[in-house]
Amino acid sequence: MVGLLGSGLSAAAEAVRAYGPDRVLVADDPRLKAFSAQGYSAVAAKMLSSLPEPRAVLAPATAMGRELLPRLAIEVGGTVAPDATDVVPREGGGLVVTRPVFGGRATLVVELPTIPCVSLRPNAFAAEKSPGASTKTEPFPVGDLPATATSVVVEKTVVTRGDTPELTEAPIIVSGGRGMKGPENFALVEKLARVLGAGVGASRAVVDAGWRPASEQVGQTGKTVSPNLYVACGISGAIQHLVGMSSSRCIVAINKDPAAPIFKVANYGVVGDALTILPALTATIARSKGLPNP
């Protein structure tokens, strides 16, 4: 069963339906336009109590998903684990959840008795469409809500994402550091990202220097990412950066300094100037994909 919460959800409901769940409950209500943990958990708890025997609650490990589940777990007397990379049923009910800790330097396997509320790390699970799915969407009446559930007012939303995917969800990330020498050279990072369909990331040093927006910062005070491929360009690999990306499936490091710590966590290393390697890499990948060289 998929529960959808929000306002103006017809397109989202249609998108979810294509994956072929048994049921899609849609709580489409103007009072849910602004997200609040208190409002959304109240509605999600009502959805759960409408089901005969809820076994587990899953949500994406996005900002909203991670904020919602602890509150929901308390409301339904359940348990919680965030950012799972693997989930299997537990004997006697509940789930056994694997999740990265210490910035991906280790993993923790946790047993969660029922009802487990688990957020799933983006990219860690494959979603497959189910062609010809005949699932019907069902409206879910929200009914009364406590006053605190509707007290958040959003004044404006500032979209920082351009045409590149959101970092935490991007399957590939090309990231630049001080070795890019200046903000103008990030065009090289962006071009490689474009031919790869990748997100653009940055080290703290270049964000602090004002070369790149804070929304691109990867690392301890920025975002934690785990794409399939992370290309670190001119990034030395300070521990504060590594904790934000070391759980990536495959890491490529391009750096002039052969002693840079980034090579210790990378799968593939290129000792060279990112300013000369990147254009060649972009051209090679563009050619192999039949794309114009940007």
Binding site: M64, S151, T157, E166, S215
Partner: peptide, 14 residues
């Protein structure tokens, strides 16, 4: 202000 996927929200709450 809070981070949301793809941007930032300016919002009020009690």
């Amino acid at each position: 202000r809070r981070y949301v996927e793809g941007g930032e929200e300016h919002f009020n709450g009690p």
